[in-house]
Amino acid sequence: MLRFIVQRLLLLPVLLFVFSVVVFILIQAPPGDFLDSYLATLASSGSSVDEAQVVALRQQFGLDEPVHIQYLRWMEHILQGNLGLSLEYQRPNIELIGERLVLTVLLALFSFVFTWAVAIPAGIFSATHPHSGVDYIFTVLNYIGVATPNFMLALILMWVAYSALGLSVTGLFSPEFIDAPWGWARFVDLLKHIWLPMIILGVAGTARLTRVMRANLLDEMTKPYVVTARAKGLSEWRLVLKYPVRLALNPLVSTIGWYLPQLFSGSLIVATVMNLPNIGPLLLRALTSQDMYLAGSILFIYCFLTIVGTLISDILLALLDPRIRMEGAKA
């Protein structure tokens, strides 16, 4: 087990290097650079910059250097841990990302807990009462949940909250707390705001997870070990929770890995609609203004999260399933 984790950790830098190259190629792919789009913005607003100034700026940002030098410069910043300087904001990327990352992680965690806390019991109920009235209701709700785009749901819920309850539910904080330092009061204020985005971001995932849990559990319920357990005289609930649910969860655990980055990036449109101060809108802005180091750094963090998520999944799966855990031991 330990060897397995160490092996995976040793692989981490290699994977990160590969991803950094891919990310860099991607952010370099669009024609032009930050200055071009900056100048275009300036031109559209009527002002202009003279040629000498442009050259100076390009030199200052290092945009005139060959691509591989730019890559090495970026890597240097990443290794130093500050992720480089945002071209647009003229601030270290780590600062820009840092304040938003905390909120993004919090929101993602809340949605994640919401998703599992709702989907697993619902899936278990559906599978143990297949084709019952409640199962059909869950099924319909699930289809609606999967089929509704979450930004649409955000708009609808915001409108409902505003027109029926008189609440303004955009953002994650009340105005007086937006720039306040972290403290208990600010956290409570966050809780007052976070529930709606949590539900909106979690709905599609919850619906999907419920379906998967139902299907997995229905599959497991027909396995002979369930009959064996019943023949022992075990009560139905204890039996279901101990045996088939445990086995039905295994494949779900392996999806946690994909879930992490999905929650981070999936919140982009919702975050824009709801004016959430998380990482999604920052990435969008960085991409449109070709703020390449900022965009690259965010993408790089996504990659990192994907790898970490997969690792967590693998470890959890090994903990849950002795067949996987012992595979390494045999060798």
């Binding site: 070990y225 009959v227 064996t228 445990r246 067949r323």
Partner: peptide, 18 residues
Amino acid sequence: GAEMALIPQEPMAAFSPV
């Protein structure tokens, strides 16, 4: 289980693997 017990058909699948 207590008074009447079953010896099931497939020993392979009759135990939970985890």
